[in-house]
């Protein structure tokens, strides 16, 4: 499995990661190497094996429907990058 710099840039966009132009090649090399390493997984027949998403065989616990959280906006926003009138500000969202 080998990834090109262009593919790396595509994945990087999906992950919203800026990758410097000259680094894409290096990432492509590293990622190709890792994907090559991971390819060993294909050597085993797992057609009859159920996937395991959790280490423990437990069911989801349910929480009672009570509002327990008080307003802590000022605490949460104390170190926020940019807020105004209680809102988090981001460059204009265009729909």
């Amino acid at each position: 499995m080998s990834l090109s710099a262009a593919e790396v840039n595509k994945i990087a966009w999906l992950a919203r990661l800026a990758i410097d132009g000259d680094k894409a090649e290096a990432y492509a090399r590293d990622l190709s190497q890792i994907l090559g390493f991971v390819e060993q997984l294909g050597s085993v027949d797992t057609s009859q094996v159920p996937p395991m998403a959790h280490p423990l065989d437990e069911a989801q616990r349910l929480r009672p429907d009570t509002a327990t959280e008080a307003d802590q906006r000022s605490l949460f926003q104390a170190h926020a990058p940019l807020v105004e009138a209680g809102l988090y500000l981001v460059p204009k969202v265009i729909e």
Binding site: V38, L41, G42, V44, T46, V49, P50, P51, M52, A53
Partner: peptide, 8 residues
């Protein structure tokens, strides 16, 4: 695939 290997 990895989740299945995890089971194994």
């Amino acid at each position: 695939k990895a989740q299945k290997i995890r089971r194994l």
